[in-house]
Design a protein around this nucleic acid. Structure first.
Lengths: 109, 109
DNA sequence: CGTGATGCTACAAATAATGTAGCATTCTGC
DNA sequence: GCAGAATGCTACATTATTTGTAGCATCACG
């Protein structure tokens, strides 16, 4: 695809439009992205803990997503071991926290 | 993968946990799902209009996502032609509408 | 009828994800 | 210090998903 992000990783689809919402939607629309943020919402998790929380998703994707999310500034690898949300990440997480309530209502149909 | 949804399409990863939020996160975490909902937020679009709006995404995925989103009850194909959000879909869309504002803040970093 | 738009499908090629195994590097407790 | 366990992370073959392009059948309009 030969696309390079401004910094380094791979580009986020839609980012070329210059509309940040597109970049964000694409980043979050990748497999496990939302799930990872969700699982980290309460407390940091080690890479292995996260893997367990994510239904044993393969470490390959998890690592890839983690890298992307770190580059985006939503996740960080703390000194004390384990991945955690940054302030920005926590903000993002709260943004779609209402999804939980929605999901509950949704299943009843 | 040999997974079948209760009704027909393919299962949503995480749905086996019985936690609806997982099913929702997986569904929305598929490529173009979030984008489709986003593009339909204002008004219904024809399949081709949607394709244009989605940066010429391939009709194959678009069609697949559209089917999934329809089965989930978020999107419907109106009589008058064109795909639109259902009441539920509109609700969902508003749920992550704050993402827009967040994205704007996000890019400034 | 012809033109154009619609929803949708086929299918090969390209990409991404899965599942296992395993590496190098810290942390432990002894 | 050092065996043992846990950490972050990578390799790689298999499988699944996405892309890109072409094209079908149907319907509305003129």
């Amino acid at each position: 695809m030969a696309k390079q992000a401004a910094s380094k990783g791979r580009t986020v689809r839609g980012s070329r439009t210059g509309r940040p919402i597109m970049a964000l939607l694409d980043l979050l629309g990748r497999r496990w992205s939302l799930r990872i943020l969700w699982e980290l919402r309460a407390k940091p998790l080690t890479s292995r803990g996260l893997r367990t929380a994510c239904d044993e998703a393969s470490p390959t994707v998890l690592q890839a997503r983690l890298t992307e999310l770190r580059e985006a500034g939503f996740v960080e690898l703390g000194e004390t071991g384990g991945y955690g949300l940054t302030a920005l990440g926590r903000e993002l997480c709260e943004t779609f926290m209402p999804l939980h309530r929605f999901a509950e209502r949704w299943k009843k149909s």
